[in-house]
Amino acid sequence: MVKAKPKPIGEIIDYVKDFDKVLVAGCDGCVTVCEAGGLKEVQVLASSLRLYFNKEGKRKDIEETSLTRQCDREYLEPLLDKIDNYDAVVSLACGVGAQFMAELYKGKPIFPGVDTCFIGSTQERGVWVERCQACGQCIIASTGGICPIARCSKRMLNGPCGGSEKGSCEVSKDTPCGWHLIYERLKELGQLDHFEAPTDPKDWTTSRDGGPRKIVKEDVQP
């Protein structure tokens, strides 16, 4: 799922300081799972904003809501009736949800309340780790089910580099060397014979290098 983290409150205060009626809108999807932008985080942010502006002697209406998903039209449309009650929206959805809201409610200033970080998994509660960079052409079949693009700091396809030490990446002792993991896994799977064949340069056109991407699945189109 998409992983995000809350923006510093000061940054959000700065966005909304000139608006009187502000809606803080969460998303019940990915950002709820990573505890950055669900209803709970909406309440905390809205309360913090009220505390701040009340302390400053500024009267503002700061309201709270959370939508099933902000990245789908059907879940955003219920806001249509209420959106004009607000001067601005702080979206705690990922960058996708916040942008989609801006796309749908063109006249309304939409501000991001989280920093969207990566596609990842939950390592333990409170710890989320990156696992995929959405390159558009999955190669983990040949790398023991571990993605070198997401997990090697240099996204090497023929790793590990000379900076791999005791299982850690040269970038940080806290970062496992992706290629060390791949090697161990290939060994476990008895697939080390693949290891010595050089992997050719990757075609990055399916990644962000090819420009904004789009998937069309005709069989499900209306």
Partner: peptide, 18 residues
């Protein structure tokens, strides 16, 4: 001298193959 040590010869072999 980098790790994993046992892979270092394979990795050279790979560069030679390239």
């Amino acid at each position: 001298f980098a790790d994993p040590y046992e892979i270092r010869v394979s990795r050279l072999a790979k560069k030679v193959a390239a």
